[in-house]
């Protein structure tokens, strides 16, 4: 939420309020507008509709509560202008009582004019209208072991990463895994050469992979590993994630690929069926073990400025 409000905004609000009071007073006093009688209920409905639509136009993503509050604030300001104009009316015309002036101000057209001016007065405050917070639809946190599981292996900046929360039920693995940022003509982005059918696996030491899993899920058999055992993970899973510098694999997929008996089945059963934690694999574990030539860069495609001929090399007066 940006707050562009400043002292000038406050001054303009006061100025608009005073101007609105004077203008409304003139409108009523001059009786220039036709009566155009409307029932009080209709006037109220029109006024609230005007406020509601305007507030929505100022902040489309506003939640219901703040929207109603904003309408209430507009009504309060409108009442303020009405009463101020009525007071000024009764002040300048002693024959008119405050009540009489108020009733004239509450006629249909003066009322709607006042409503309009109330919105003008409140306009500088529109930047304070809060936006509705986006909520992930089917993701949730709980205190089950899988939560600790998912967070244990994330770097600090991944603690709030929704991609590493539980993926419930049939929800797909988050889109960020294969999203690439960068628009057209972005000099940073060049699609690496990857064959359409990515085949093959990368072999990782089982001990190092098990170290990424909370120990309560690892059985005692893991202690008897001699360090030579490997687990093969598909390149089709690994490669698309290299460009994001973060490699994760679904826990259930990893369990299927690990040798039998290394995962404590009784512990994994505690995980709810709908929860599918992700295991973060360190880059230093995976990248050095990739097959030779797998990280193929596309042909150089430097931007236009990089192709300019450098006729004069810049030299600095070094000590």
């Amino acid at each position: 939420m940006r707050k562009d409000f400043s002292g000038i905004g406050a001054v303009s609000m006061v100025a608009f309020f005073l101007a609105a009071t004077v203008v409304c007073l003139q409108i009523v006093h001059s009786k220039a507008l036709p009566p155009w009688p409307l029932p009080a209920g209709v006037i109220w409905m029109l006024e609230i509709a005007l406020f509601g639509v305007t507030v929505y136009a100022w902040r489309r993503a506003i939640a219901l509560g703040p929207w109603l509050l904003a309408i209430g604030a507009a009504i309060v300001v409108r009442l303020g202008i009405t009463h101020a104009s009525a007071f000024a009316y009764s002040l300048f015309d002693p024959t008119v009582t405050h009540q009489l002036a108020l009733s004239e101000m509450n006629a249909s057209l003066p009322r709607l004019c006042t409503a309009f001016f109330a919105l003008v007065v409140l306009y500088p405050l529109r930047s304070f209208l809060p936006e509705k917070l986006a909520q992930p639809k089917t993701r949730t946190r709980s205190d089950s072991p899988a939560v600790a599981f998912a967070f244990q292996n994330t770097p600090t900046d991944g603690a709030n990463d929704p991609a590493l929360w539980f993926v419930r039920g049939e929800e797909k693995i988050p889109v960020w895994l294969d999203a690439q940022r960068g628009g057209d003509g972005d000099a940073s982005v060049a699609t690496p050469v990857v064959s359409e059918e990515i085949e093959g696996d990368v072999d990782l030491p089982v001990r190092d992979v098990l170290a990424q899993i909370p120990q309560e899920f690892v059985s005692e058999k893991a202690e008897r590993l001699d360090g030579s055992e490997v687990v093969s993970l598909p390149l089709a899973t690994i490669l698309p994630q290299l460009r994001e510098a973060r490699i994760v694999i679904r826990f259930d997929e990893l369990c299927e690929r690990l040798p039998d008996g290394l995962i404590d089945v009784s512990e994994t059963r505690r995980l709810e069926e709908a929860e599918t934690p992700l295991v973060l694999l360190p880059l230093e574990l995976v990248v050095p073990r990739l097959p030779e030539g797998i990280l193929v860069l596309p042909p150089p495609s430097p931007p236009a400025w990089a192709k300019l001929e450098l006729t004069d090399k810049v030299v600095f007066a070094r000590t």
Binding site: A187, S188, V189, P192, R243, L295, L297, S301, P303
Partner: peptide, 19 residues
């Protein structure tokens, strides 16, 4: 000691191979 190879960093940051 614990650094990524330049090839991977280039793959990540500099696929267009600017200097």
């Amino acid at each position: 000691p614990n650094i990524a190879p330049v090839e991977y960093l280039r793959y990540l940051i500099n696929p267009r191979q600017v200097p």
